[in-house]
Structures are given as structure tokens and as C-alpha cells.
Simulated assay, not measured.
Amino acid sequence: MSTLSITNRTLKLGSTVYQVSNVTSVGKYRIKPRYTFKIRFIIICGLFSWLGVELVKRNPDMLVLNWVIGILFSFVFLGILERFIRPKKYGLSIITNSGGVQLIASTNQKLIDKIIDKLIEIMNNRDAPANYTFNVSDGDIINQSGLFENGVKVG
């Protein structure tokens, strides 16, 4: 578990420290999930399943084809189910003057919103003393050097 510590002058994330005065922008983004079953694969399995059902209607004695159809239908079902079950992930990007980007990813959208609110509060009120600490899991801190679009392109 890493901690994100925010004070009036510094922003410490893991073992990296940033000056709050060097932060140029902070934003929240929805991160595109990576699915096991791609849409094309689901559509192709669905088409082959439909074709297999039509073949079985004409020749019901083909036992092997019934198994293949069952497997293809299960791929279609699992692909659709994966899209409903996979949690949505949100990213918090912290961009500095030097162009460095730090991204914190979390399924907890309220945590990302709370961090952004505290950063805005500190940036707007430099004289008021502030000290905030947030617990962020180690796997959720990503060094990012790509583009932000509908999701995150890492690379």
C-alpha cells in the first residue's frame, strides 16, 4: 500500500515528490478496460454458432457439431458477461511543468474525486495549512507518457 501525501508545498506519491507549484493540471479520466474476448471474436463466434444451428437443423445426427455449437455459445455468453461484470476504472493524471505525468488508477471514483478536490483546495489556498494522506494500492500507480483520449494509451 502506497500513500499519497498532499501538503501546501509538496505532493508525495510513493517515493516520488512533486512541488505543488509545478503541477500544471490534474484530471480524471475513464480508463478503457482490456477485455479477454474482443467484440470481433464474439461476433464471429455468434455467426458460427448460428451457422452450426442451421446445419444441425438439417442433419440432427451430428453429435460433434452440437458440442462445437455449445462451446461457441459459451464464448459468446462469457464475452457479453465480461462486459457487464468488469468494474469501471478511473485514472487521476497529475501533469507537471516538465511534462511528466503520473497516473493513479482506481475503481473507486469517489477517491479520485476527493483527491482532486483536495488538490484544488491547496492550489487555491496556499496560505491555509493543509496535510492530507490517501492510501493508494501499489498496483494502481502508473508512470504514463502517452495520450489521453476516451481511455488511456500507455506507451
Rank of each mutant, 00 (worst) to 15 (best):
residue 45 C to A: 12
residue 35 Y to L: 11
residue 23 V to Q: 13
residue 152 V to T: 09
residue 86 R to N: 05
residue 64 V to R: 01
residue 38 K to A: 04
residue 80 I to H: 05
residue 142 I to H: 02
residue 96 T to Y: 09
residue 33 P to C: 12
residue 43 I to F: 01
residue 34 R to W: 08
residue 13 L to V: 14
residue 50 W to C: 03
residue 29 Y to N: 09
residue 86 R to H: 07
residue 132 Y to S: 02
residue 3 T to L: 15
residue 107 T to D: 07
residue 63 L to I: 15
residue 126 R to W: 00
residue 95 I to F: 06
residue 104 I to P: 08
residue 106 S to E: 02
residue 146 G to V: 00
residue 4 L to W: 04
residue 91 G to A: 09
residue 136 V to K: 03
residue 77 F to D: 08
residue 33 P to H: 12
residue 68 V to Y: 04
residue 49 S to Q: 07
residue 77 F to G: 14
residue 61 D to P: 00
residue 89 K to A: 14
residue 6 I to V: 12
residue 85 I to L: 10
residue 127 D to H: 00
residue 17 V to E: 11
residue 24 T to L: 13
residue 15 S to F: 02
residue 152 V to E: 05
residue 29 Y to W: 15
residue 144 Q to P: 00
residue 74 S to V: 05
residue 111 L to W: 09
residue 25 S to T: 14
residue 119 L to A: 13
residue 112 I to C: 03
residue 107 T to N: 10
residue 21 S to L: 02
residue 4 L to E: 13
residue 114 K to G: 04
residue 99 G to I: 01
residue 46 G to A: 06
residue 84 F to Q: 10
residue 32 K to Y: 10
residue 32 K to L: 10
residue 96 T to I: 13
residue 78 L to A: 11
residue 58 R to P: 05
residue 103 L to I: 07
residue 52 G to R: 06
residue 30 R to W: 01
residue 70 G to L: 06
residue 18 Y to D: 15
residue 139 G to V: 09
residue 25 S to C: 07
residue 71 I to G: 14
residue 79 G to A: 13
residue 44 I to K: 06
residue 109 Q to N: 04
residue 10 T to R: 15
residue 147 L to A: 09
residue 43 I to E: 04
residue 104 I to F: 13
residue 96 T to C: 11
residue 77 F to I: 13
residue 128 A to P: 00
residue 11 L to R: 05
residue 11 L to V: 11
residue 85 I to W: 10
residue 108 N to P: 04
residue 98 S to G: 09
residue 94 I to Q: 07
residue 126 R to I: 15
residue 72 L to H: 11
residue 64 V to Y: 07
residue 147 L to R: 02
residue 111 L to R: 12
residue 155 G to C: 05
residue 86 R to I: 12
residue 116 I to T: 01
residue 24 T to G: 06
residue 17 V to W: 03
residue 93 S to D: 10
residue 60 P to M: 07
residue 97 N to D: 07
residue 94 I to H: 10
residue 133 T to I: 00
residue 2 S to D: 08
residue 154 V to H: 02
residue 131 N to I: 08
residue 42 I to K: 12
residue 46 G to E: 08
residue 151 G to I: 04
residue 145 S to N: 06
residue 149 E to L: 11
residue 57 K to D: 02
residue 127 D to Q: 00
residue 23 V to W: 05
residue 85 I to D: 01
residue 80 I to F: 15
residue 38 K to C: 11
residue 151 G to S: 12
residue 95 I to G: 04
residue 70 G to S: 10
residue 42 I to A: 08
residue 18 Y to C: 14
residue 56 V to N: 06
residue 9 R to W: 05
residue 87 P to N: 14
residue 123 M to K: 09
residue 22 N to Y: 12
residue 52 G to I: 04
residue 131 N to P: 03
residue 114 K to S: 03
residue 72 L to K: 05
residue 16 T to V: 15
residue 135 N to E: 12
residue 30 R to I: 08
residue 51 L to N: 05
residue 42 I to S: 00
residue 136 V to Y: 04
residue 93 S to M: 11
residue 123 M to H: 01
residue 96 T to S: 12
residue 85 I to H: 07
residue 2 S to Y: 06
residue 2 S to R: 09
residue 76 V to K: 08
residue 41 F to Y: 12
residue 76 V to F: 00
residue 94 I to S: 12
residue 126 R to Y: 07
residue 135 N to Y: 03
residue 94 I to T: 08
residue 110 K to C: 07
residue 91 G to S: 09
residue 93 S to W: 01
residue 130 A to F: 14
residue 147 L to N: 01
residue 154 V to K: 03
residue 148 F to E: 09
residue 14 G to I: 03
residue 60 P to E: 12
